[in-house]
Design a protein around this nucleic acid. Structure first.
Lengths: 144, 144
DNA sequence: ACACTAATTGTAAATATTATAAAGTAATAA
DNA sequence: TTATTACTTTATAATATTTACAATTAGTGT
């Protein structure tokens, strides 16, 4: 079992969230996949292990994980939400052609948050930033 | 007629997009509303003027406007997409309690885009950033 | 005014997500 | 270990958003 998974399970215990086989599997998949799956991706990936699992279970548990702070929900206009296991502070670079998402480590934009708080009077909790463009693969395809 | 509306109509003409009464009204509403309405908001607001207008028309035209670059689509997890008439470069500060969206002017994060491009090899086209927190009104309500 | 082409309408369908109730199961303590 | 209890899962239905489609209507250039 990975260190990250162990930590995640500890977090669940501390917050009084029951550890069910489904939750265990969803977390494990999120951590190992290294991608940013949709709820349906997760559902399909675990169909083999849990033939009786309901889609609702995936959604329920992703919400639980989000509330506990283990998982971040990424929403885009066109498709369904994607879910990302939170590790270190990073942003995402998204290919507009094929939808690929690449992690991009960058120091948090604290200064922007502070200015926003000052100008608008909001009590700022966090921010979200994504960068959009064309990935190298798609750029090559386009050139042909 | 506002300057912005006139310019927007010119843009449509230049790109060969027909100017229909519905499109005129949707643009006008977007410009005047100073808010960030959902497709349904727009539909409801124009029901009086266009009793026969279809929801599909609103969606179709918002997509057209987005393709032409007049309108930006903002997507969040919980609710439906919101649409914003593009004026100057600004970001949004969003209240997590009541959903209020406030504009926040800030110089573009060009440096981040450049670094992302360098690190990931992407050809970057644009980025998106939002700041989340609690608005002053909701902060007062909470204190009571 | 005419003809051509695109837009609107109304409806249906697709998709994503949430709600609900019944059945099952993990955690806790005796 | 077992009984208890509250939380979870499941299965299904419901809701909501958005798109697709075919027939009708309406802009626009000549």
């Amino acid at each position: 079992m990975s260190h990250q998974l162990k930590e995640a399970l500890d977090t669940l215990k501390e917050t009084g969230v029951r550890i069910t086989p489904q939750r265990h599997a969803i977390l494990e998949y999120l951590i190992n996949s290294m991608s940013h799956p949709t709820a349906d991706d997760i559902y399909k990936a675990l169909e083999g292990k849990f033939p009786n699992m309901s889609v609702a279970t995936v959604y329920n548990n992703l919400r639980v994980f989000r509330e506990v702070g283990l998982v971040k929900e990424l929403t885009y206009g066109d498709a369904s939400s994607r879910f990302d296991f939170i590790t270190t502070h990073h942003y995402h670079v998204i290919c507009e052609k094929c939808g690929k998402i690449v992690d991009f480590h960058y120091p948090g934009l604290d200064e922007v948050e502070q200015l926003a708080s000052h100008v608008t009077g909001f009590k700022v909790s966090h921010h979200r930033m994504e960068i959009y463009g064309t990935c190298p693969d798609c750029a090559i395809k386009e050139a042909h």
